[in-house]
Amino acid sequence: KEWNEKELQKLHCAFASLPKHKPGFWSEVAAAVGSRSPEECQRKYMENP
């Protein structure tokens, strides 16, 4: 399903605030978004950083 504005906001906010070198980075991003898997978050971010 399409990403909504709130999900995208959470994605970018989590990406900006979490340490990128940490193992499980995308899992933490997904936990912050709440409604998406780590894979979905990574794919979406890579599509549209």
Rank of each mutant, 00 (worst) to 15 (best):
K1P: 00
K1S: 10
E2S: 07
E2W: 00
E2M: 10
E2P: 05
E2D: 15
E2F: 07
W3F: 09
W3P: 03
W3Y: 02
E5A: 07
E5K: 13
E5M: 12
E5H: 05
E5G: 05
E5I: 11
E5V: 09
E5Q: 15
E5D: 10
K6V: 10
K6C: 08
K6H: 01
K6I: 13
K6D: 14
E7T: 01
E7V: 00
E7K: 00
E7R: 00
E7I: 00
E7C: 00
E7F: 00
E7L: 00
Q9M: 06
Q9K: 14
Q9W: 04
K10M: 08
K10T: 14
K10Q: 09
K10R: 09
K10V: 09
K10G: 07
K10A: 11
L11I: 02
L11Y: 03
L11A: 01
H12F: 10
H12V: 06
H12Q: 14
H12Y: 10
H12L: 10
C13V: 14
C13D: 15
C13R: 15
C13Y: 13
A14W: 01
A14K: 05
A14V: 09
A14Y: 06
A14F: 04
A14D: 02
A14H: 03
F15R: 06
F15K: 07
F15Y: 15
F15C: 14
F15A: 14
A16L: 09
A16E: 13
A16P: 02
S17F: 10
S17L: 04
S17E: 10
L18Q: 10
L18H: 07
L18G: 10
L18M: 10
P19N: 09
P19T: 06
P19C: 08
P19R: 09
P19S: 11
K20Y: 05
K20D: 08
K20H: 08
K20I: 09
K20Q: 15
K20P: 11
H21L: 12
K22W: 03
K22Q: 12
K22T: 10
K22G: 11
K22P: 08
K22E: 11
G24R: 12
G24A: 09
G24W: 04
G24V: 07
G24K: 14
G24S: 13
F25L: 09
F25Y: 12
F25W: 05
F25Q: 04
F25D: 10
F25E: 04
F25S: 04
F25R: 03
W26F: 01
W26R: 02
W26G: 04
W26M: 03
W26L: 03
W26C: 03
W26E: 04
W26P: 03
W26A: 04
S27D: 14
S27T: 13
S27P: 14
S27V: 12
S27N: 15
S27C: 10
E28Y: 06
E28G: 08
E28Q: 08
E28L: 09
V29M: 03
V29E: 01
V29K: 02
A30Y: 00
A30K: 02
A30G: 06
A30W: 00
A30N: 01
A30P: 01
A31W: 04
A31F: 10
A31R: 13
A31E: 14
A31T: 09
A32N: 12
A32E: 15
A32S: 10
V33H: 01
V33Y: 00
V33T: 04
V33I: 07
V33M: 05
V33S: 02
G34A: 12
G34D: 07
G34N: 03
G34I: 02
G34W: 01
G34S: 08
G34T: 04
S35E: 11
S35M: 05
S35T: 13
S35Y: 07
S35D: 14
S35N: 12
S35K: 12
R36T: 03
R36N: 04
R36C: 05
R36S: 03
R36I: 02
R36D: 02
R36F: 12
R36W: 06
S37P: 04
S37A: 04
S37R: 08
S37M: 05
S37K: 05
P38F: 04
E39P: 04
E39Q: 09
E39C: 07
E39L: 06
E39Y: 10
E39K: 06
E39I: 10
E39D: 13
E39G: 11
E40H: 02
E40D: 15
E40N: 02
C41V: 04
C41F: 01
C41I: 01
C41P: 01
C41G: 01
Q42K: 05
Q42H: 06
Q42F: 04
Q42T: 05
Q42C: 12
R43F: 14
R43W: 06
R43H: 15
K44R: 12
K44D: 01
K44F: 08
Y45P: 03
Y45N: 05
Y45E: 07
Y45K: 05
Y45D: 04
M46S: 14
M46G: 14
M46I: 07
E47W: 04
E47M: 08
E47Q: 03
E47P: 04
E47L: 05
N48Q: 10
N48K: 12
N48P: 15
P49H: 08
P49I: 09
P49G: 05
P49Y: 02
P49Q: 15
P49L: 04
